[in-house]
């Protein structure tokens, strides 16, 4: 009970926090609290330990292993026996190779990677990855919001609509990709339907458009659902109050819905951004990476078949890129979320 009371008091009275509870609280009920806290701490450690160990095994070990691997040269061919031999320590040359697009040259040194090698595609793949991410996430956010607003309304057949909207999300991405691959074939439905003769997978613009359409179709429901969850958190009386005050529908949307749904929206966007930065299935199946649709993930997989160690370096670079994006996003998102919560309280009439 005392524990339950504690947070509210500290929360309310900001200034006179119990600065040193150990000394102060020895006479009062703080003693029991302290002990409980101690045993709680032990228990917590014990209970969390399995998770931490598991995470260390499945996250820490592979990451470290990948980094260690990335510091080795790829296996090379012994010209006499024709068998592969270990490449030896490489330092950061694999990383430099990717970032500056340097490949091994026959004479022994390095040269600029020739077109048609995996190494020559790093920066174009990075650009493609971000291009897809920005366009798809923007489209999915707008469409998802729209769908969520519709689904949040009370009307006949609402549950049927919600179930229907989820269908694209429920289909495995590889299946989706194959479906769209057929749709965008030259003799496919897309061309038949619109009476066009576009080579969807034959040049960069249409190929990218095709992938974006497929991705938006597939993942908008995910956005819609997360935003819908956010919308349902908003109590109805806030809207009623706004109506009483004579706010228009647009004002209610911009002044109430948007700020209150923002935290959920931001998390949804973050998830989608991270997801989109790892995009693999759609381009792999629809275009095979042809016509400037090679994403970083495609490049990693292509490199794995050529040599694990360079691939490990590339995965690590990809990991860092996505990590930095996530980090920036979370800082940015965290600041905003706090701000909007405080701002919302201030503005509320």
């Amino acid at each position: 009970m005392s524990i339950g009371a504690e947070p509210t008091t500290t929360h309310r009275t900001k200034g006179p926090k119990p600065a040193k509870p150990d000394k102060q609280g020895k006479e009062t009920n703080g003693v029991g609290q302290d002990r409980r806290a101690k045993t709680q701490g032990k228990w917590a450690t014990l209970l969390i330990a399995p998770t931490l160990i598991l995470l260390a095994i499945v996250i820490l070990y592979p990451v470290i292993n990948a980094i260690v691997m990335s510091l080795q040269h790829d296996q090379g061919l012994d010209p006499v026996t024709g068998t592969f031999v270990a490449g030896g320590f490489a330092g950061i040359s694999n990383y430099i190779g990717w970032l500056f697009q340097q490949c091994a040259s026959p004479s022994g040194g390095t040269q600029a990677c020739s077109p048609g090698s995996v190494g020559s595609q790093f920066w174009s793949a990075t650009y493609t990855t971000f291009f897809f991410t920005v366009i798809t996430v923007v489209l999915e956010t707008i469409l998802g919001f729209w769908m969520a607003v519709i689904m949040a309304r009370a009307f006949r057949g609402r549950s049927a609509l919600r179930a229907a909207v989820l269908v694209p999300w429920a289909i495995p991405t590889a299946v989706t990709a194959k479906l769209w691959f057929f749709i965008f074939a030259f003799e496919g439905i897309a061309n038949k339907l619109f009476g066009t003769a576009i080579l969807w997978t034959g040049s960069a613009g249409p190929a990218r458009a095709a992938i974006i359409i497929a991705d938006v179709w597939k993942t908008t429901p995910f956005m819609a659902l997360l935003i819908l969850a956010g919308l349902q958190m908003i109590p109805a009386d806030v809207y009623e109050a706004a109506k009483v005050d004579g706010a228009s529908a647009w004002q209610r949307f911009t002044q109430i819905t948007l700020p209150l749904v923002k935290p959920a929206l931001m998390v949804a966007i973050l998830f989608r951004v991270l997801d989109a930065l790892r995009m693999y299935d759609l381009p792999a199946i629809m275009t095979g990476g042809a016509n400037d649709t090679t994403t970083l993930s495609l490049l990693v997989v292509a490199q794995i078949r050529n040599g694990f160690n360079s691939a490990a370096a590339l995965s690590t670079i990809t990991f860092l890129i996505i990590f930095i994006v996530a980090f920036i996003f979370i800082r940015f998102l965290g600041a905003n979320a706090v701000e909007s919560a405080a701002g919302g309280k201030g503005k509320g009439k």
Partner: peptide
């Protein structure tokens, strides 16, 4: 969020880490 991001990425890395352990010899 970051934890999920990290874990997903790490799994991806694990996929190639696991297969590349030993060199041909």
């Amino acid at each position: 969020a970051p934890l999920a991001a990290v874990s997903v990425l790490a799994l991806a890395l694990a996929a190639c880490g696991g297969s590349g352990g030993g060199s041909g010899g």
